[in-house]
């Protein structure tokens, strides 16, 4: 769970870090990825693995292009004003939800996993697919990190993040960078969704939970800090689980939530962030 959370959160962290934009519709991009995965796997014949791989390639591209379109048509015109983008992304959220409800329907629908392997531990069983998801998420995250740290694209992004005006002066097309980052962030959410949909099923309201969680993860981890986001994703996934051993599950959720809030209060820069938020 943590692995998928990390993927979604990194997408949000990118958008957040580079563009300074709160994307309330991020969870809907996640949902869109999952729903698209259901369509792709249903339409493509053959063994489930083929459809799944197709979904893994096509869905993020589709979602990324929707995001890029939204960025160009709406967010750019708002000049990324923080308040206005919140309203705009709430509007986007409604539109995407309605689109999913009208075209896909209100039911939760499962997607077949590309393989079913059950790892049997002495005391209980665990799904082999889940382990594969963790591995896949790790690979993708490494890829994102390489992209940011080692390539020219990453350099341009970081430059834009630090100082938009200077970057523009150096001939960087800031608009293109923003559209690209927004699309990349949404694409990552979609990848996470495709990976999780054999475990969780696609549903038109599923964007809500990952949105909240990834918000938390991003902040706890420190804005724009990929490493922090990863650690935070693990921490939150685990802390919830550990506390629930000792208390009733709902009480555990309450305590975990308060814990996260208090971390923020007393360490506002996040766990790994280098500067104050």
């Amino acid at each position: 769970m943590s692995a998928v959370l990390a993927l979604t959160a990194v997408g949000l962290a990118l958008v957040f870090g580079v563009m300074r934009v709160v994307n309330v519709a991020h969870g809907e991009f996640f949902m869109l990825g999952a729903v698209a995965a259901w369509f792709v796997t249903t339409w493509i014949p053959g063994p489930p693995a083929v459809g799944f791989i197709a979904a893994l390639v096509l869905c993020p591209l589709l979602v990324a292009s929707v995001a890029a379109l939204a960025d160009t048509l709406v967010l750019k015109r708002l000049n990324y004003d923080p308040d206005a983008t919140i309203v705009a992304t709430i509007g986007l959220l409604y539109i995407l939800q309605q689109a999913a409800l009208s075209l896909y329907g209100p039911d939760a629908r499962p997607v077949e996993a590309p393989f079913t392997l059950r790892v049997q531990f002495p005391w209980f069983g665990y799904s082999g697919y889940k382990l594969a998801v963790i591995a896949a998420a790790a690979v993708i995250l490494a890829g994102v990190w390489l992209l940011l740290a080692r390539t020219k694209i990453g350099l341009v992004m970081r430059a834009t993040q630090i100082d938009r005006e200077t970057a523009r002066a150096f001939g960087i097309n800031v608009d293109r960078v923003y559209a690209g980052v927004f699309a990349l962030g949404a694409g990552l959410a979609a990848v996470a969704a495709v990976l999780i949909v054999p475990i969780q099923q696609a549903h038109y309201l599923m964007g809500h939970d990952p949105l909240l969680l990834s918000f938390i993860v991003v902040i706890i981890g420190g804005l724009g800090s990929l490493r922090g986001t990863l650690v935070a994703a693990l921490l939150i996934g685990l802390s919830d689980g550990v506390i629930s051993v000792f208390f009733s599950p709902t009480l555990a959720k309450i305590l975990a939530t308060l814990f996260v809030a208090l971390v923020l209060v007393f360490r506002p820069q996040g766990l790994m962030g280098r500067r104050a938020a």
């Binding site: 709406v74 509007g91 409604y94 995407l96 309605q98």
Partner: peptide, 13 residues
Amino acid sequence: LLVVGVALLVLVL
């Protein structure tokens, strides 16, 4: 919901 979403976008634009 679509109408509401579009109306919000228009307003904010």
